[in-house]
Amino acid sequence: MSELRGFYTLWLREVKRYLRDRVRIVSSFFQPLLWLVIFGVGIGASLRGAVPIPGLTYQQLIFPGIIGQTLLFTSMFMGISVIWDKEFGFMKEILVAPISRVSIFLGKMIGDSTDALIQGIIVIFLGLALGINIDPMTFLASLPIMLLITFGLVSIGLTIASFMGSLESFGAIQSFINLPLFFLSGALFQIQSLPGWMQDISKANPLTYGVDALRNVILGAAWQPFQVQPLFMDIAIVGAFDVGMIIIGTWAFSRMK
């Protein structure tokens, strides 16, 4: 019971801090907007309608990918909260509290995932505003999938941050992980047309299945012939990845002093 309350209070803290950070919320509109409008329209125009998937514009094709990208970048960035807490001393207050490291990790992780989910929802509304068609059922179905994607990614961010001492070194790691994961997830193209070696790497990337799941839900029938895996397999793979990362993250937190 007291563990559950500890978990809840840490979750609430992450969400409160996020919702108070107006600058971060407003700026979160901006990057996906650039990708969808400038990159989406620009590349779409140069393809002159020759998008490899019948019935879809290029912008529509990358829309689930940009949701995935937003979830990735936001989730990984959340690790920074651990470094902040270490830097400003608040981590000590949490670590000496009479609650288990599992609850501490889960509270922080699910709190950060909630924040990342809100960012994902913002991108969906951005898509709606740009004229991409998303019905209410599709919207609801995408929520648990987005959340599932963030669990594993936030866990990576928190794990890395728990080993790091400074904000600067965290930034460096970010670019070594974020961009490769993003480019190799098929967010901007479908991976079937890639050369074999690159396809193999993409298939080892957990985000590939996250983006594929979002496409299965949002693009529906038009995407089905091109899907990497059926929806249930996507979910199973992302779920297994989450479980693995949560175990590693909990271990990383339990060794933190």
Partner: peptide, 8 residues
């Protein structure tokens, strides 16, 4: 409040 919750 946060402290109170952490300490049950």
């Amino acid at each position: 409040y946060m402290h109170a919750n952490l300490y049950g």
